[in-house]
Simulated scan of single mutants.
Amino acid sequence: MSSSWVWRRGRKLKRADHVHGWWWEAVLGDDEHGQWAAQLAQAPTFLRDGTVFRMADAVIRCYPRDEWWVATFYGSERGVTFVRPGGGVDERLNPNAIYVDMSTPPEWTEAGISFVDLTVDVVKRYDGTIAVLDEDEVDEEARKWATPAGQLAQARHSRARVEGFMTAGVGVFGVVAESWRDRFEGCR
Rank of each mutant, 00 (worst) to 15 (best):
Trp7Glu: 14
Val80Asn: 08
Arg181Asn: 01
Gly29Asp: 01
Gly10Phe: 03
Gln39Gly: 08
Ala168Lys: 07
Pro95Val: 01
Glu163Ala: 02
Trp69Phe: 14
Pro64Glu: 03
Glu141Phe: 13
Met166Arg: 02
Met1Ala: 15
Leu28Thr: 00
Gly128Arg: 00
Ser76Gly: 08
Cys187Asp: 15
Ala37Lys: 11
Tyr74Glu: 09
Gly75Phe: 00
Phe173Leu: 06
Met102Cys: 06
Trp145Gly: 08
Leu13Arg: 04
His20Ala: 15
Cys62Thr: 07
Val89Gln: 11
Arg11Tyr: 10
Glu178Val: 09
Gly87Val: 04
Arg188Lys: 11
Phe115Asp: 03
Arg54Asp: 04
Arg11Phe: 09
Met1Val: 15
Glu25Asp: 04
Ser114Lys: 07
Ala97Leu: 10
Ala37Thr: 11
Val116His: 02
Arg84Val: 11
Gln151Tyr: 12
Phe115Asn: 02
Trp23Thr: 04
Arg65Ile: 14
Arg9Pro: 06
Val19Ala: 04
Glu77Leu: 10
Asp182Lys: 15
Glu141Ile: 12
Tyr74Ala: 05
Pro64Trp: 02
Trp5His: 12
Val170Gly: 12
Glu25Trp: 02
Glu135Phe: 11
Val120His: 01
Trp180Glu: 00
Ala38Asp: 03
Leu133Asn: 03
Arg156Ile: 04
Gly75Leu: 03
Thr119Gln: 08
Ala111Thr: 11
Thr81Tyr: 07
Ser4Gly: 15
Asn94Pro: 01
Arg92Gln: 12
Thr109Leu: 03
Arg183Val: 04
Glu107Ile: 13
Tyr74Trp: 12
Gln39Asp: 10
Val70His: 01
Gly150Thr: 13
Arg181Gln: 05
Trp22Met: 12
Phe82Glu: 03
Ser158Met: 06
Trp22Asp: 13
Gly75Ala: 05
Arg78Thr: 09
Ala58His: 07
Thr81Lys: 10
Val138Ile: 05
Asp90Arg: 14
Glu135Trp: 09
Trp68Tyr: 10
Val89Ala: 05
Ala26Asp: 03
Thr147Val: 13
Thr147Met: 07
Pro105Glu: 05
Pro85Gly: 09
Gly79Cys: 04
His18Asn: 14
Thr119Gly: 06
Ala97Arg: 12
Trp24Gln: 14
Asp139Tyr: 12
Arg48Pro: 01
Arg54Cys: 04
Gln35Ser: 11
Glu110Phe: 09
Ile130Gln: 04
Thr104Trp: 01
Val172Cys: 10
Trp5Tyr: 13
Arg156Lys: 13
Val176Thr: 08
Met102Trp: 06
Asp127Glu: 00
Ala41Pro: 08
His18Gly: 12
Val172Tyr: 01
Glu67Phe: 05
Gly128Trp: 03
Ser76Tyr: 06
Trp180Lys: 01
Asp90Ile: 15
Asp17Asn: 13
Pro95Gln: 05
Tyr63Trp: 13
Gly169Phe: 07
Leu93Trp: 11
Pro106Tyr: 08
Glu140Gly: 14
Ala56Leu: 09
Asp101Gln: 08
Asp90Tyr: 15
Val80Trp: 03
Ser114Gly: 09
Ser179Cys: 08
Val83Met: 12
Asp66Pro: 08
Val172Ala: 10
Pro106Ile: 00
Val27Asn: 05
Val176Ile: 13
Glu140Ala: 14
Val162Met: 08
Arg61Phe: 01
Met1Lys: 15
Gly186Ile: 07
Ala16Tyr: 15
Phe73Arg: 02
Glu185Trp: 08
Leu40Phe: 14
Tyr99Asp: 06
Trp180Cys: 00
Asp30Thr: 11
Ala71Thr: 01
Leu118Ser: 06
